[in-house]
Design a binder for these strands. Structure first.
Length: 542
RNA sequence: UGGGCUAUGGCCAAGUGGUUAAGGCAUCGGACUUUGACUCCGACACCGGUGGUUCGAAUCCACCUAGCCCAGCCA
């Protein structure tokens, strides 16, 4: 299933290598440390990483920390952990804040060239004079201050001589540009806030549009990938690189964001779910945050496979999470141990099996991957099978499970035949009485009869009790925008069951298993008695 | 209504004038099966619309239509 689509950015890079424009391809992933990463970010991370590596270059992780009031060290740690988990190794770890001195110097250069000025207008006034989509803006009355005055004022801004918001530095470009971004954008604002890296060294901070191209140029980024909404910013990006006289000229290229159908993405919405307690935290397994996917047990290789299968288009459609599910199964089908588990048990009593007898059979962990070895599988008079695997009456000829009068194979054990049922007071099936045929032992080569299907079981007296958590979509009716998110929460998004697994399999945190005929599950990172369903097995049962 | 983008089967996505219009997901048949899993076979598109250019167009041109983004001292 690993299918690397060609994409337009790869083509651009190939051409740049071929033409000799670049001999080393350098990319970067530039998150702002103000929230957790989610599946959508995986596209940017993986593509940036892959493209650089495919052409013998490298990839930097750079935190775009130019706004101290929103950013926090806690997020930088979480982001680093997520990217490392994905296996996308960065060559350099940088912070935009590493470059504040350089940025200030370059901004001053703009001032000296008469390309930037200090503006005393309030935020409100700037907004009012910027014009709108159809009308030009009006130049600020401070637009024509002398270069000397601007130099002095900008210095004074930096030195803390003005109150927050009293002045800004603006680029002098074009107040009547049809591109709103070019209407004398703000370059620096005054903001007294403690920065997670530079603490209180600065009271002025550069805006994204100014900072980002310089960061890229300073690092020698050759291809600066970002999402479509920055397409309008590209002229500004180029303007700043040119007029600040940066040596390296990075090229910004925009691609379409990855959108996932029927999922909550977007930091603010996820944050709302976290804050309002609809989920356990940013790493809740129902979330498509990278930490949530990790906690659920999704292997990072599956995320790579998924991202590569999607390619890197400029269009933005809604991707069906089925594609991720399929990638997960594909990765886990060979790598995961396969064991028996019963989530909704009914008791099976083998009436012709001696009461105190107990035997240990041997079963492979994964018949498609012998290197995983074997495990002992217990068998006795008392077993547990899945409630769904028994029916009082066989409904039709194609029904391949246990029913009264029918014989099935217990996987890796014997054929059993159901003879009688006992109900509890509530009318629920309590015990199914069966007989087994010793001749049919697994591996014996017995072929005289064909069983009515194969089901799995767990030996009852030794079984390990575990908590099994089943997940369904967190939010329903995601397409109905008029309903607030908290009213769309699926009350069945997490169903907790008490189940049983084989006795002799030690559960190690973070390890993933296939529960035969059920699905893939992973052991919780903190509590090995809890298993999360990663994804169900497919079924063509009708 | 200014500017910037996008539009290929139910979903994603290749394709850049000559192809039977890749591939994946989903779906539907069927084979196999000690997981109704896996695997394997098979089915599944007149390329947003309308005109035009051309021997030939998803690919070029024109005009429409639909959707997304931009008026933060956010990124």
């Amino acid at each position: 299933m690993t299918m690397e689509n060609s994409n337009f950015i790869r083509t651009i890079i190939e051409n740049d290598v071929k033409s000799g424009k670049h001999d080393t391809i350098i990319t970067r992933f530039p998150p702002e440390p103000n929230g957790f990463l989610h599946l959508g970010h995986a596209r940017a991370i993986i593509m940036n990483h892959t493209l650089a590596h495919d052409y013998g270059g490298y990839f930097n992780l750079r935190f775009d920390d130019t706004n101290p009031v929103k950013e926090d060290t806690m997020y930088v740690e979480a982001i680093k952990k997520d990217i490392a988990w994905l296996g996308c190794h960065w060559k350099n770890l940088y912070f935009a804040s590493d470059y504040f001195d350089e940025m200030y110097f370059r901004a001053m250069r703009l001032v000296e060239k008469g390309l930037a000025y200090v503006c005393d207008l309030s935020a409100e006034q700037i907004k009012d004079t910027r014009g709108d989509l159809t009308n030009s803006g009006v130049g600020s009355p401070y637009r024509n201050r002398s270069i000397e005055e601007n130099i002095a004022l900008f210095k004074a801004m930096k030195n803390g001589e003005f109150a927050d918001g009293a002045k800004v530095l603006r680029a002098k470009i074009d107040m009547s540009s049809p591109n709103m971004n070019m209407r004398d954008p703000v370059v620096y604002r005054i903001q007294r806030a403690t920065h997670h890296n530079t603490q209180d060294k600065w009271c002025i901070y550069p805006m994204y549009d100014f900072a980002h191209p310089l960061e890229d140029a300073i690092e020698g980024i050759t291809h600066s990938l970002c999402s479509l909404e920055f397409e309008d910013h590209r002229p500004l990006y180029d303007w700043f690189v040119k007029h600040t006289e940066m040596e390296n000229v990075p090229r910004q290229i925009e691609f379409g964001k990855l959108r996932i159908a029927n999922q909550i993405s977007g930091k603010r919405y996820i944050k709302q779910l976290v804050d309002e307690g609809h989920v356990d935290g940013w790493d809740d397994p129902r979330l498509i945050t990278l930490s949530g996917l990790r906690r659920r047990g999704v292997p990072p290789q599956a995320i790579h496979q998924f991202i590569h299968a999607l390619g890197l288009p400029k269009s933005e459609g809604d991707t069906d999470l089925n594609m991720l599910d399929e990638a997960i199964r594909d990765v886990l089908k060979i790598s995961a141990k396969r064991i028996h588990a019963v989530i909704d048990p009914i008791h099976i009593e083998i009436t012709n099996y001696p009461d105190n007898a107990f035997e240990t059979l041997i079963a492979p962990f994964n018949k498609d991957n012998e290197s995983l070895g074997d495990r002992p599988l217990h068998f006795s008079r008392h077993l547990l099978i899945e409630r769904d695997d028994f029916m009082r009456q066989k409904p039709n000829k194609k029904y391949k499970r246990l029913a009264l009068g029918e014989e099935v194979r217990l996987m890796h054990a014997y054929f059993i035949k159901a003879n009688d049922v006992k109900y509890d007071d509530a009318g629920c099936i309590e015990t199914v009485y069966c007989t087994y045929d010793p001749q049919t032992k697994s591996g014996s080569g017995f072929t005289d009869r064909k069983p009515n299907g194969t089901i799995h079981f767990v030996e009852k007296t030794q079984a390990q009790a575990v908590e099994i958590r089943l997940y369904e979509p967190l939010v329903l009716n995601t397409d109905q925008k008029d309903i607030p998110v908290h009213e769309k929460i699926n009350s069945n998004s997490r169903v907790i069951k008490q189940g049983f697994i084989e006795a002799s399999v030690p559960l190690k945190p973070n390890e993933s298993y296939q529960f035969t005929r059920i699905g893939y599950f992973s052991v919780d990172a903190d509590n090995p008695a809890i298993l999360h369903r990663i994804v169900a097995l497919k079924s063509s049962f009708k």
